[in-house]
């Protein structure tokens, strides 16, 4: 059903290269607060192609989350245009946006945002439920995703029975279950200790390398950004810097040098 909603969308309104996954054109975002107006994004233009691994950085309040919410179709730009795989998202209706969030985007949050009192497996299969996928297929996909993030033995655990790193891995599995074209992560390691953070980055690197998944990740830490391929720096709602990362860290290697803390 989700698929039909997307196929109902006008095919391609505008498109850069065929590999363009994200294309933002002069995106502005205002928040009206009484009389004053907060200008959170002041003309952001950016293109991200398939297989990229982008770190979004910048000081607090610079507009990173606002931008991510727009990329994730949780929010709409006040002006400017945003194309997701060539589709002009601002033309879509709520139902179609929900379908896009469901099918094309995997979102990982700083606070995990798992459903409480719901097992890891059920959490992971939830997007497939809303995609009207059959129960067997849902289970199969959720199990595969959980195994992929190394939680094959914790499927029946509730979030309250999992560590922060494990909860974040359930959230990643959930983000992957509908095989999205892009994974968005807003400070996914913000609540994790350094070793667990690297473990999560290892999963992201693996997804990016092995499956060619496009990833955009917000982080405050340079160490974490170092695992990505490209770093975009925000300041006051605009892009200050946009560089490729040199001397890229490989999480699997870094992990070998880190001491293992006993649980």
């Amino acid at each position: 059903m989700g698929n039909t909603v997307i196929s109902m969308v006008e095919p391609v309104t505008h498109s850069g290269s065929t590999d363009s996954v994200i294309r933002a054109e002069d995106v502005h975002k205002y928040y009206e607060l009484g009389d004053s107006r907060v200008h959170a994004l002041r003309g952001v233009s950016m293109e991200i192609t398939r297989g990229e691994f982008v770190a979004v950085m910048g000081s607090s309040g610079s507009g990173k989350s606002t931008f991510m919410n727009i990329l994730g179709c949780l929010d709409q730009p006040s002006s400017g245009r945003y194309f997701l795989e060539g589709i002009d998202v601002s033309t879509l209706e709520k139902k179609q946006l929900a379908a896009i969030r469901n099918q094309k985007i995997g979102f990982v949050f700083q606070g995990f945002n798992l459903l409480a009192r719901t097992t890891a497996l059920e959490n992971a299969e939830l997007p497939a439920f809303y995609a009207r996928v059959s129960q067997e297929e849902r289970l199969r996909r959720a199990k595969t995703a959980l195994q992929m993030v190394g939680l094959g033995d914790r499927m029946d655990h509730f979030p309250s029975q999992l560590s922060g790193g494990q909860q974040q891995r359930v959230a990643i599995a959930r983000a992957l279950v509908n095989r999205p074209s892009i994974l968005l992560a807003d400070e996914p390691t913000g609540n994790l200790d350094s070793r667990t953070s690297v473990e999560v980055m290892e999963i992201f690197q693996k997804l990016n390398e092995e499956q060619g998944l496009t990833i955009v990740l917000v982080t405050h830490e340079h160490d974490i950004a170092q695992f990505c391929k490209r770093a975009v720096v925000f300041r006051d709602g605009t892009i200050r810097k946009d560089d490729l990362i040199s001397n890229r860290s490989i999480a699997a290697d870094v992990l070998k040098t880190m001491p293992v803390l006993e649980d």
Binding site: G2, G72, A98, L115, Y130
Partner: peptide, 16 residues
Amino acid sequence: TREIGIRLAIGATEDD
């Protein structure tokens, strides 16, 4: 509210 936010974020429609 938070549960509803999560469901909407991962693709539940208003109707769902």
